[in-house]
Every structure is written in C-alpha cells, then in structure tokens.
C-alpha cells in the first residue's frame, strides 16, 4: 500500500524533526536503570541476575513517554484528522506510526544495553540474538501501544491512562522478553529460547493485525 509508505515516511520525518525528545526519553530510561540498581543494592550477584528484568522494565516505562509523545503533533492542530478526511486510510496511518514507534523503541533498547552492561556488570551475551529480542519485544510494545496512545492522547488524564491500559496487556511480552534475554545473557541449558521467541512472534503478529483492524474505529468520531 503506497499510503502506508507515505505514512511511514511522514512519521519517520516527524520523529527525526523531534529527535530532541528521543534524548530525553533515553535519559529517562537510563535514570530508571540507575534507580533500580539503588533499589537492589550493591550486591553484584543480585544485580547481574536481574539485569534483563530491569532493562525491560526501564524500556517499558520509557515507552509510555515515547508512545504518548508520538501523537501530540497529530492532535494539536487536528493534523491526523486532516489526513483521515482526505481520505487517507486509517490502517495505513496506523502502520506508519506503529512502525516508526517500533524503530524508535528498538533504538532506545539498544542504546540502553551498554548502560545495563556497565551498571549491572552483566555480560550481554550474543549481540545478534539480543538485538533480535529487542526488536521482537519492542514490537510487542509498539503495536498495541500506538493504538492506545491514539486513544488516550485525546482525553484528559492521558499520562495515567496509557500505562494503565498498556501494562497489563503486555505482561506476556515482559515475561517472554525478560526470560529470553536472561537466557541469551547467561546461557540456555534447556533450549527454552525458542519457545519464548515463538511467544513473542505470536504476540506481535496477533496484535499487529488486530490493532491495525481496529485503529480505524479509534480515530473516527
């Protein structure tokens, strides 16, 4: 669909023009990682053991900022409505935004890894599997998150509503991503990585399609 490509190009350009916000979100994520380490205390063993969990928690928290932000520019002048009325297919608009958000979150995840390695003294394991998991996990955050962000940015109290709606939904993503990342980092004696990866892929596919289908209803009045 050419409209999807036009939408993707628009959202990528939007993100590039507001790249200062990415830095802010990254700093938030890094701060979260630091705070988590304070909560655990300086015990090297405990930090290393939970590094994967903290990485994904920090990523999840930072994602609510990034996802919420992604719709501000759309709503302040009713720009998204302007496109919908052209008419532009809401499905195309959804995928453009969701893919752009996915790229941003994946980049955020990769940027936070060195921070995690240093703070928690946690060896990253294989770089390629780790990047792959970050891609799969952030997709699971981005696809439903983009839909929820489109909803919540239009109502008051949106800051609270987005995490409130998103976090229970992405419990499987958190479990799978953390488990799989731990396995990549510390070894996988029972070959469980495949099942977790499969779970992530299934979640991503299901929600990428479901949210694409439902997005139209969310942006229509």
């Amino acid at each position: 669909m050419t409209q999807a490509l036009v939408a993707l190009r628009k959202d990528a350009l939007l993100q590039w023009r507001t790249r200062g916000r990415f830095v802010a979100v990254f700093v938030f994520g890094a701060t979260a990682l630091l705070l988590f380490s304070f909560a655990i205390g300086p015990s090297a063993g405990a930090l290393r053991q939970h590094a994967a969990g903290f990485l994904w928690l920090a990523l999840m928290l930072a994602s609510t900022l990034a996802l919420g932000d992604s719709f501000h520019g759309e709503m302040e002048n009713r720009a998204l409505e302007g496109l919908v009325l052209l008419p532009a297919s809401p499905v195309a608009l959804y995928y453009g935004k969701a893919l752009a958000n996915w790229a941003q979150l994946a980049l955020l995840g990769v940027a936070l890894v060195p921070f995690m390695v240093v703070l928690y003294d946690a060896p990253p394991g294989g770089a390629l599997p780790l990047i792959g998991l970050i891609l799969l996990g952030t997709a699971g955050l981005s696809f439903p998150g983009t839909l929820y962000a489109a909803m919540t940015v239009q109502v008051r109290g949106s800051q609270t509503l987005l995490p409130l709606l998103l976090f229970p939904l992405v419990v499987p993503v958190l479990l799978a991503a953390v488990s799989a990342t731990s396995l990549v980092m510390t070894g996988d004696p029972m070959d469980q990585l495949r099942s977790w990866t499969l779970l992530l892929v299934c979640f991503d596919l299901i929600y990428a399609s479901l949210c694409g289908l439902l997005f139209g209803r969310v942006v229509e009045s």
């Binding site: 036009v6 939007l14 507001t18 520019g73 002048n77 409505e81 302007g82 009325l85």
Partner: peptide
C-alpha cells in the same frame, strides 16, 4: 474542510505539509 484548527504539522514546512496532502491524494 477548512477547520478552525489548521490541520497541519508544526514541525514540517508549509511546502512539506502540502506535499504530504498531495501524496495521500495520490
């Protein structure tokens, strides 16, 4: 529709906004 709100993206230029419309109109 000419709405109260301008329906444009603030971070884009005027030309970019129009080109975006043109591309969506195909």
């Amino acid at each position: 529709l000419l709405d109260h709100k301008s329906q444009v993206y603030d971070v884009f230029s005027a030309l970019e906004n129009l080109e975006l419309v043109a591309r969506f109109l195909g």
